[in-house]
Design a protein around this nucleic acid. Sequence first.
DNA 1: AAAAATATGTTGCATTTACAACAATAGTAT
DNA 2: ATACTATTGTTGTAAATGCAACATATTTTT
Lengths: 154, 154
Amino acid sequence: MKCKELHYTDSIHYELEQTAKLMRILTAQLFERLEISISQDEYAALDTISINPGICQRDLAKLIIKDRANTGRILNCLEKNNFVTRLVDIKNNRLVKKLKITQKGIDELNFINTKIKSYLDNITEKISQEEVDRVQEILRGFRLDLEKLVEMKI
Amino acid sequence: MKCKELHYTDSIHYELEQTAKLMRILTAQLFERLEISISQDEYAALDTISINPGICQRDLAKLIIKDRANTGRILNCLEKNNFVTRLVDIKNNRLVKKLKITQKGIDELNFINTKIKSYLDNITEKISQEEVDRVQEILRGFRLDLEKLVEMKI
DNA sequence: AAAAATATGTTGCATTTACAACAATAGTAT
DNA sequence: ATACTATTGTTGTAAATGCAACATATTTTT
């Protein structure tokens, strides 16, 4: 008798959404309080670009799970602040805008990382590192399965 | 040397957000494909009310993590479809609107549960039930900690 | 070679969402 | 008693988001 899954709100799907929603609100409040100049979406984009130098906009959109329109808008902000550069180039014989983080962007990224690290670590302090790692690993597998199921129109 | 946490996009916080985002998109597509008449937010609200009969709007808002305005709008839809009733009553000497699910609402809830169950189960099929339970348990503790940290203006 | 389909980025718009202001009521303070 | 504050729900509005349409260029099809 599986009473666990009778309610959607008891499912792992809903638990995931609620936790993520809270996490997002908390991060926004943290960014506000620490007077961080960019949004958490811009921060995520900047971090993704720093790991994937030369990535084009569409591939970035897929990684940060935003549509191309909003990815472009995020990049407008980052470019205006000189945190990234857009370089028109060729990829698979296609004109694309390749993205690179600037030195100013790297500095900003490090600055934000330093500022928020202790706060973010604090959230998971009650959970052992092994458990955090384990959850992260399972979530990753979960996400990779989801990516196969979802029709991403990006 | 902890290389894991050097990048925000490698953190459990970001992993959580990405996974939840995909989950939300997939659920929306599922609701669309199965021609389910209400949104997933309305579904979550309906489920929450069914578990907490007589709950007032503000308390519901806290549970589904929406502001009062949008919770009210969700309830407008559910009430228009006769899935819930709003009954003006007193709680702590305050006038509140207490919510109850109707028989039609119960039927709709069961109908949706039946329709989506196999699809949702399918997503986590590669993960053992024990692991799902474990992740859910850890996420729950994580969420409860988050609730203490976040300033909820609801 | 012409036409159709695909890929990439941008613009416009309609929906969603959050936040602030308001109305009504009740408790608390001066 | 009057004024101030707090609670609950609604309305209005500005910002965020997603989706469709477009412009441009390339590949594939006929």
